[in-house]
Design a protein around this nucleic acid. Structure first.
Length: 497
RNA sequence: GGGCCAGUAACUCAGCCGGUAGAGUAUCGCCCUUUUAAGGCGAGAGUCGAAGGUUCGAGUCCUUCCUGGCUCACCA
């Protein structure tokens, strides 16, 4: 018998004793007249009226004594102390109560009062089991010291926190708070876009051909069709088909999947909001991003200033908009605009920046990532990217190597990517064919030619601005989370055992 | 994939130069009618991440592997 069984067996014993006492530890009916927060917010009302009420919740702390006990129960709204006396609930009921453990769910009938030490509590008239918990929840104790909470035996093992998120949520209140904020952030973005007459749509996750981003896909198979399918790496090409189909503003809250390495800012499945707006360009999209994120910040957090680790971030608009090449000149201290592609590639080798494909675009990208990105702390729109690494963006009319594309950075983290979408079907075909060449040269993330998409574009796509926003990363920023695992409820983990 | 660190009771951790496992909390029993890290007395609880190796003897040393963290690389 191992120790877990010892603890579990103790609880199973109590379960049996409850049955012996004629108590159903998993009853169907529940009576609740108030949430715990109702009491916390207006205790005097309940005390003056001597109102009898029913509260329910999970036992989170328990101090049993011989003929009286204190415990705390918690529902979604808060936590309150319960005082129970044998002479007030009766011998039978107290005996039932004595079988309770931390983690059990109880229903309490009682009246609100203050204890001698001044803690708002409910004086039980009757307790009823709602659920007997069989497995012990780790006990985290806390003490107030100089107004600060000191935690004892905090549930801290990261692996267990991610694998058993339900325990993490129960035992680490900040975690719950982060995910409540995540929910509000996504809800805000939806509302914001809905109010601007965007249509929310759903496009295929299982795709016969993947595209819209540079990434390696997950591959799966449809048995009946005997067909290979890919989990989408982006929604882009389908959302553009909808613009072609006559929707002028569409968005999708999308899980995308990329079969790549995982680290602090990458999880194999992650959430984006992609949106496309006809008759707009990337300047309009920059305005939209600014407006959406600052309004969101004000509404949800009541402020525009954030601490993110060592950084102080201010979302106050306007955010700076700087051409990528200017930023390279600023941070890499080279005159990149006057350098030939060969010189730029040489510069990369000098700096030991590895290039899988030796092209102008890849070289610029590499310099930017290594020498510029980490410096982009304040919100910054980096504009005008090399064409070779942006096969879906429209060329800048005055500069043939560049396209109308921006990425938005905050705290050195890329949180969004947008283009004035390429809508010239001839140019688009050329660009995709160029991608295939890169693929053959070893660029595993290069796109393939999606003939169906090209055909759609040949029918005519209006001028369009498009955007992908990294929802997980935005949540990270606004909740001061430094790993994407801390903003995804069930992050990807290796199989254990 | 590389480097560093970690994995010992349900939780949080200690365990020195190698001598066969320890604390607090939790659990169980007794006492306890205003406690709050409740308290007092007593008890039980471990495949020391896994597998090999060295040794008379391994939690401890060596090798490989597993899992996680940090970091570098990779990564729209």
């Amino acid at each position: 018998m191992n120790n877990e069984n010892q603890l579990i067996n103790a609880r199973k014993q109590k379960l049996k004793l409850l049955y012996d006492l004629g108590v159903n530890p998993y009853p169907k009916s529940v009576k609740r007249t108030h949430h715990i927060s109702d009491i916390l917010q207006n205790p005097d009302k309940f005390i003056e009226n001597e109102e009898e009420l029913y509260v329910v919740g999970r036992i989170r702390a328990l101090r049993k004594m011989g003929k009286a006990s204190f415990f705390h129960i918690e529902d979604k709204s808060g936590r309150i102390q319960i005082y129970i006396r044998r002479d007030e609930v009766g011998r039978e009921n107290y005996k039932v109560f004595k079988k309770s453990d931390i983690g059990d769910f109880l229903q309490i009938k009682g009246k609100v009062f203050y204890t001698n030490t001044g803690e708002l509590s409910v004086r039980a008239k009757k307790v009823k089991f709602l659920v007997k918990s069989i497995r012990p929840i780790p006990v985290v104790k806390e003490k107030r010291q100089d107004g600060k909470k000191v935690l004892y035996d905090q549930f801290a093992d990261k692996e267990m926190r991610y694998r058993k998120r339900y325990l993490d949520l129960l035992l680490n209140p900040d975690v719950k708070d982060t995910f409540l904020k995540r929910s509000k952030i996504i809800k805000f973005m939806r509302n914001f876009l809905d109010e601007k007459d965007f249509i929310e749509v759903e496009t295929p996750i299982l795709q016969p051909m993947y595209g819209g981003a540079a990434a390696q896909p997950f591959i799966t198979k449809h048995n009946k069709l005997d067909m290979e399918l890919y989990l989408r790496i982006a929604d882009e090409l389908y959302l553009k088909r909808l613009i072609i189909g006559g929707f002028e503003k569409v968005y999708e809250v999308c899980k995308d999947f990329r079969n790549e390495g995982m680290d602090r800012t990458h999880n194999p499945e992650f959430t984006q909001i992609e949106l496309y707006q006809a008759y707009a360009d990337y300047n309009d999209v920059m305005d939209l991003v600014e407006e959406m994120l600052t309004n969101m910040s004000k509404e949800i957090f009541g402020k525009l200033q954030f601490e993110y680790g060592e950084y102080n971030i201010d979302l106050k608009t306007p955010w700076q908009r700087k051409p990528l090449l200017d930023l390279i000149e600023e941070y890499a201290d080279i005159n990149i605009k006057n350098m030939s592609p060969e010189e730029i590639i040489d510069f990369c080798e000098e700096k030991e920046l590895e290039l899988d494909v030796k092209t102008y675009g890849k070289a610029i990208d590499e310099i930017f990532k290594n020498l510029v990105e980490p410096n982009l702390i304040e919100p910054t729109f980096v504009i005008d990217y090399p064409k070779e690494i942006s096969p879906l963006a429209k060329s800048k009319s005055d500069e043939s190597r560049l396209v109308e594309r921006f990425e938005v950075f905050i705290a050195g983290m890329e949180i969004g990517n947008a283009f004035t979408e390429l809508n010239d079907p001839f140019d688009q075909r050329e660009r995709l064919e160029e991608q295939v060449k890169n693929r053959e040269l070893g660029d595993l993330e290069a796109n393939e030619v999606d003939e169906d998409f090209l055909e759609a574009m040949e029918y005519g796509m209006p001028p369009t601005g498009g955007l992908g926003l990294g929802v997980d990363r935005i949540v990270m920023l606004l909740t001061d989370s430094h790993s994407i695992k801390d903003v995804i409820l069930f992050p990807q983990m290796r199989k254990k055992d």
